[in-house]
């Protein structure tokens, strides 16, 4: 009986590790990474995952072994002990060191992605000249491009909904704003998530490395229609970006003749 119970306990880490090993094959792992900093985020995730996995496996194996070895029938009654200063020092110090290690190891990545002083400056887009203003509202995404003058907030701004078109292999900086409540701009493939706060204009940057259409979802419960806030980010080549902007401009200044049916 003791063997059965300890084997059942041992099955937990074995099955756990097995599902992680199989995750890629089963497509239950992360979506592909298509942003320049996504690899670092995944690296941090894996770092923590390995630390936790190591602890988990060791704990579970110990548990299984103890259940086997100290079965009630074969052992003496357990002795009561009162505290151990040494032991407490150890189990406080080790997690503390581990947590500090995690905290320090992520600082560089966080600063690179989120600190404004580290935002791309030399490219076509910067905090002063963002590619677009992204407006989140209940329950829709809207994208406002600066138009010909390159300045947002002027009459020639172009506006579109649902689909955020950006060029590939370019540092893209945009401004994130909310019209009503807190929303969150989340593109899983970019490993990018940023809350939009009403009354704040938050600059965000990313660099997409592969063309395609990726889901843009709201990652902050924003009301009953939260699930409807699904848009997309379309990453296109520089030439196609130009064509699409020109088409958007033509549609924007349309005289209404093309609207058939």
């Amino acid at each position: 009986m003791r063997l059965l119970f300890s084997l059942m306990l041992l099955a937990v880490p074995i099955l756990g590790v097995w599902t992680f090993l199989k995750a890629d094959e089963w497509h239950t792992w992360f979506p592909q990474n298509v942003s320049s900093f996504g690899g670092e985020i995944d690296g941090l995730f894996n770092l923590i995952l390995y630390m936790v996995a190591f602890t988990f496996v060791v704990t579970e194996v110990c548990l299984a072994w103890f259940v086997f070895k100290y079965s009630a029938k074969r052992s003496d009654k357990g002795a009561f002990t009162h505290g151990s200063h040494k032991l407490e020092m150890i189990w406080t110090a080790i997690p503390a060191v581990a947590l500090l290690f995690i905290a320090f190891s992520q600082m560089e990545t966080w600063a690179k992605i989120k600190f404004q002083k580290n935002f791309p400056k030399d490219g076509a887009y910067s905090v002063e000249h963002p590619i677009a203003e992204v407006w989140a509202s209940q329950f829709d995404w809207r994208f406002r491009y600066p138009g010909d003058d390159g300045v947002l907030g002027t009459v020639d701004d172009l506006e579109t909904s649902f689909e955020f078109v950006v060029p590939v292999d370019t540092d893209v900086v945009f401004k994130l704003r909310s019209r009503d409540v807190i929303h969150s701009f989340f593109v899983p493939e970019f490993r990018l998530k940023q809350d939009a706060l009403p009354g704040h204009t938050i600059p965000v940057w990313f660099r997409a490395t592969k063309t395609g259409v990726y889901d843009l979802v709201c990652a902050e419960l924003c009301g009953w229609g939260h699930y409807k806030m699904a848009g997309s980010v379309r990453v296109v080549s520089a030439e196609e970006f130009k064509t699409r902007m020109a088409a958007l401009k033509a549609e924007w200044f349309s005289n209404g003749k093309e609207e058939g049916q």
Binding site: S137, Q138, F139, D140, R142, S161, F162, E163, R179, G225, K228, M229, A230, G231, E259, G260, Q261
Partner: peptide
């Protein structure tokens, strides 16, 4: 019809009517 289509496609900004371009 095209007027209704445009509302479904673009949504109505400033209201809870979202874009259904999905």
């Amino acid at each position: 019809r095209a007027d209704l289509f445009r509302i479904l496609d673009e949504g109505v900004t400033g209201t809870a009517m979202p874009s259904f371009r999905r």
